[in-house]
């Protein structure tokens, strides 16, 4: 069974269609393996070779990669949830009920989206602290650190805007309290809150605004900055590897 499957795969690789998609041959030589990375749109920002030291688990604990994976998962589950969600009060709350009791697998999708969101906030924090302790912010990585801080902010905003969308008591009061903190800003505070909510209280306007921020503006911004962040990791010389790691102790 396994051998026939393997043979079928090998046959597939000789077809004209396969060869038109993957122009390189099988990735068994270093040359074709290089092409596999820099000839691929989705991998071309990676270096062709990586230092053995930066492959060790404790070099990054995969925190950055996993944050990105969670972002992708959030985009996928989020887009799927959008098919059943109306950003209006009180329909939004009814949609939550529908997702739990009426829509097939709706509750699973919502659970995945929520767990991924909380985990992403956690991992982005861990990622930042880990980079700090490794000295990853030092020259020439200064600007990438700043982008990282902005990405942390965007992650928090994404999570917070999403928090309002179920339109239940938890959501409403978390956002009421949070936006009242904004009005503690001197001079412009209450104006900022009014514009952010589109009113004096957390209502329909606020729900719609948070929705648009949550599903369009912030994800696009995050996607853009994640791209720059990854790009700069390579352009600034790869992961920071401490000379201390050379003798094998940490």
């Amino acid at each position: 069974m396994a051998t026939t499957f393997h043979a079928a795969l090998e046959n597939l690789r000789t077809t004209r269609v396969w060869k038109s998609i993957f122009r390189r041959g099988p990735a068994i030589t270093n040359r074709t393996r290089s092409v596999a990375v820099f000839g691929n749109l989705f991998l071309h920002w990676l270096p062709v070779k990586v230092r053995e030291k930066s492959l060790r688990v404790r070099a990054a604990y995969y925190l950055g990669s996993l944050s990105f994976l969670l972002f992708l998962l959030l985009v996928i589950t989020g887009v799927l949830l959008m098919f059943y969600y109306h950003p209006a009060a009180p329909n939004a709350y009814r949609d939550m009920k529908d997702l739990r009791f009426v829509v097939s697998n709706g509750v699973f999708l919502r659970n995945m989206h929520r767990i991924a969101a909380h985990l992403m906030v956690l991992l982005v924090f861990c990622h930042m602290f880990h980079v700090f302790y490794r000295g990853g912010y030092k020259p020439p990585h200064e600007f990438n650190w700043v982008i990282g801080v902005v990405l942390l902010l965007i992650t928090l905003f994404l999570s917070y805007t999403g928090y309002l969308l179920p339109w239940d008591q938890l959501a409403f009061w978390a956002v009421t309290v949070g936006t009242n903190i904004v009005s503690a800003m001197p001079v412009i505070g209450s104006k900022v809150r009014f514009v952010a909510l589109g009113g004096n209280i957390v209502g329909e306007n606020a729900l719609l605004r948070f929705y648009v921020l949550h599903v369009v503006i912030l994800p696009l911004l995050a996607f853009l900055l994640i791209g720059v962040h990854f790009w700069r990791v390579q352009k600034d010389g790869g992961l920071t590897v401490r000379s201390k790691d050379d003798d094998g102790k940490n």
Binding site: A27, N30, R33, S34, A36, V37, L43, L46, P47, V48, K49, V50, R51, E52, K53, L55, V241, D246
Partner: peptide
């Protein structure tokens, strides 16, 4: 830089 490995497949 120390020893290096190919990104594909190692990383």
């Amino acid at each position: 830089r120390g020893p290096e490995l190919m990104t594909y497949p190692h990383l």
